[in-house]
Design a protein around this nucleic acid. Structure first.
Length: 478
RNA sequence: CGGGGUGUAGCGCAGUUGGUAGCGCGCUUGGUUUGGGACCAAGAUGCCGGGGGUUCAAGUCCUCUCACCCCGACCA
């Protein structure tokens, strides 16, 4: 029995060692495997299915807001990358270079895209001539490469999957509207689909994207109290347009520069789902994103009629839900643990006793609460239960985030909170880079964002005591 | 890139003063089982991370190297 117990507890407790818990989950739930190149991961079918659902949901929203998908090359000539100064300085340290084609040394080395601003800019310069050509609302799904020093599956890998939207507009106002529109799309997606509450706001200059005029972000809080930047939306103004010569002729026959935006989310969102909803029994997936919403587990399936009934239910429910039937000869207890580990939102048990009573047992993953449901009203009850789980996950995550959101008015208070009770800390800031640097130096916490919903906690900067300009969410970040 | 740790069967690990490799889980086959990780029986599985040394003999000692994990600095 001791041995069995150990097996069940194969996942490290999150309170004991959060990092190890995370690693255990992604391996045991079959999300990823390590690849032979350092820092690269294999996204396994179950993990990739989550990404496919993310793609499906986001693509719908992108199309609804008028965007078209395109595909850009993965190589960027060095000369092209060098065109925008701040941008290069931001990315140069972490790009991978291709220097040879076969045995031939290339005359100009090519970087493997770390992001595709330069490619989109080059293309826009070619295809935009008139105000009639605007706006251009493009998006691409691809992978990018950043030669990171340390890596963690989903959170930071050398190569990762993402989408990057790149748009060009006639006016600064339109570009700003687009930047905020897409930030809101991300926020809505995170909250409604991933059940992850987010704080919307603007990045400080120190934290903004290399080459951007302004960066907006959605920030979420993980179970361990560390913050995760979950999506960003940048307004480039006309900086890139000037560097790349993207001009159009307006209605008055005047030559103008376009105003651009870019925005992206990555497979990191999967890391967020794990760290926001997961527990000591494994993954917990929000029904809207779960590859499998219902696992049907026949009990005593060698007995007459059980398997037949289970198959009948599977066929019936598969019309409306993402369902699997596990008719392998594993023990029921093993299957319970397995599907909990994989975060399947609801499981259905059906055995001889249930068939007699024309019922099934539904068990929700998040609370393990069991309900007996008549087979006749299964579709309705299951739909209700999935909705209830979706909502409960959001509520629970929000409650935890709110609980772990603190207020500090002095640097001493701030330091104490950061050290003793990790989470978001709301505090006032004068807007000076020196104070931001000092906070990081002292506490290793950074400014996550200046939220749109500002509060006046005090009229002085917590660091220097000068008049406060912004209320900032601070925290240690992934 | 700094600090720490680990590489032995698919996974988790043991391997004493150097003597030619073992345990648990998993896997295969057969049987009994099935409402919270079943049991019995019979099997299969190793370039001991890699290179170089020392030695009659290296998983074990020396040396170089590679990879991964954790903590920092940098980033999505």
């Amino acid at each position: 029995m001791a041995q069995e117990k150990k097996l069940v507890e194969a996942i490290t407790s999150m309170d004991e060692d959060f990092a190890q818990w995370y690693t255990d989950i992604i391996r045991k739930a079959d999300l990823v495997d390590y690849a032979s190149v350092r820092g690269c991961m294999i996204i396994r079918p179950y993990g990739y299915a989550i990404w496919e659902n993310i793609q499906k949901e986001l693509n719908t929203r992108f199309k609804e807001t008028g965007h078209e998908n395109v595909y850009m090359p993965m190589f960027i000539p060095e000369s092209l990358l060098l065109k925008e100064k701040e941008h290069v300085e931001g990315f140069a340290p972490e790009v991978a270079w291709v220097t040879h084609g076969g045995d031939e040394k290339l005359t100009e080395r090519l970087c493997v895209r770390p992001t595709s601003e330069t490619l989109f800019c080059e293309h826009y310069a070619n295809i935009v001539q008139s105000y009639r050509d605007l706006p251009k609302l493009y998006n691409q799904w691809c992978s990018v490469v950043r030669w990171e020093k340390t890596t963690r599956p989903f959170l930071r890998t050398l190569e990762f999957l993402w989408q990057e939207g790149h748009t060009a507009h006639a006016t600064a106002e339109e570009a700003q509207e687009e930047t905020i529109r897409m930030l809101n799309v991300y926020a809505d997606f995170c909250e409604k689909v991933l059940a992850i509450p987010v704080v919307k706001g603007r990045k400080t200059d120190k934290e903004k994207f290399a080459g951007a005029k302004a960066t907006y972000t959605i920030e979420s809080l993980m179970h361990d109290g560390k913050a995760l930047q979950s999506g960003t939306s940048h307004n480039f103004g006309d900086g890139f347009a000037q560097a790349f010569g993207i001009q159009y002729t307006d209605k008055n026959n005047q030559l103008q520069y376009v105003h651009q935006t870019s925005w992206g989310v990555t497979t990191r969102l999967i890391g967020a789902i794990i760290m926001v909803h997961g527990d000591d029994n494994g993954l917990v997936l929000p029904p809207k994103i779960a590859p499998t919403q219902l696992a049907i587990l026949p009990i005593s399936m060698h007995k007459e009629g059980v398997l037949e009934k289970a198959r009948e239910l599977r066929d019936r429910l598969a019309k409306k839900f993402r369902v699997i039937l596990d008719d392998s000869d594993k023990m029921p207890g093993w299957k319970f643990s397995e599907y909990e580990m994989k975060g399947v939102p609801v499981r259905l048990e059906i055995g001889p006793k249930d068939i007699e009573k024309n019922q099934v047992v539904l068990v929700r993953r998040d609370t393990r609460e069991k309900t007996f449901v008549s087979i006749d009203e299964l579709e309705t009850k299951l739909a209700e239960l999935l909705d209830a789980v979706q909502q409960a996950l959001f509520d629970k995550a929000k409650e935890l985030r709110d609980k772990k959101t603190y207020v500090a008015t002095t640097i001493e208070e701030f330091e104490k909170i950061v050290q003793e009770t990790p989470g978001f800390v709301k505090a006032m800031w004068c807007g000076d880079r020196a104070c931001e640097d000092a906070v990081k130096e002292k506490t290793s916490a950074t400014a996550r964002c200046m939220p749109f919903e500002q509060e006046s906690l005090s009229d002085k900067c917590m660091c220097c005591g000068k008049p406060a300009k912004h209320m900032v969410y601070w925290g240690k970040a992934y």
